[in-house]
Amino acid sequence: MDIVSILSNAVTQAVGPLAIVYCLAAIGLNLHFGYTGLLNFGQAGFAAIGAYGLGIAVKTLGLNLWLSLLVGIAAAVVLALLLGIPTLRLRADYLSIATIAAAEILRLVVRNSELSKVTGGSNGLNGYGRDFDKLNPFNNATYGFGQITFSRADFFIMIVGWIVVAIFSLLIWALIRSPWGRTLKGIREDEDAVRALGKNVYAFKMQSLIIGGVIGAFAGFIFALATSIQPDNYGTELTFFVYTVLLLGGAARIFGPILGAIIFWAALSLTDGILRGLVDEKIITFLSTSQVGQVRYVLVGVALMLLMIFRPQGILGDKREIAITAR
């Protein structure tokens, strides 16, 4: 078993484009779920609408990169409004069912073959990223050191991606320390109490849904620019993994999503490398190499359960909070 290569793979994954995608989606979800208590199970839909907004704007409307990003953002705002207007007045669990269904509707519609001229149907879209590639200031074929190397394109998207992560983390930090953020936290604890104090809870929830949704759309942008747009990347499991990321790092913590995404991808990569190594060396015989990738997701599910049961406040949880929520 090549320990060095397993470890460098883990590092590569932990800071790579997919970790950024999950991190951004989790930052948006953190505003929804962590700070406002909104049970949004449609974060995959926000990522999808960002990605498709960008892709369609470039390919069908022929817009440049910047305008296309604006289209993606606008699409996410519209989705948030469409979802929020009816469901934000509902109980938390109704919101979860409505949002998961909306995300699924979106996926089924874009992958539908009747729309393949615009959305690419089940094949998705590609070839919309030329403007972005042109911006790439890096010229070497690869960047990195030792076994941790990234292609020129990956390196560029990573730099851009982590800058976006930093900006949004800062934004959330600034918002949450304000009276606006305090009201969101109040709504999370008990929205009727906040309503009884004269706050328009509905408006606050809508603002939270829109901002978190737009951050989710940025996750879609990074996903789209790092690879291609595939409808099935935006299934319900993406949302579930993002919840795992958020709960792993710690909901209602600024660094929760970042830490969560890094650990999530490092752990996925490590378990894959180690299990595969054990299979190769015939230490594990009941699994084939093709099953290793699947076993990892069993572990994700178990991890999500154990986290929620034993440490719902995540790695960055506050001790005083634990004292209250420990039951």
């Binding site: 669990d93 979860s96 699994l287 699947q294 572990l299 994700v300 599910g301 999500l304 049961i309």
Partner: peptide, 29 residues
Amino acid sequence: PLRKRGTGVIAMMIISIGLALAVRYIFLV
């Protein structure tokens, strides 16, 4: 046991998602 502990419904919902993922991928394996 979770009920006895007083686990909230939203926590249970997320736990059920974890269970769903785990069991689903066991079936796949």
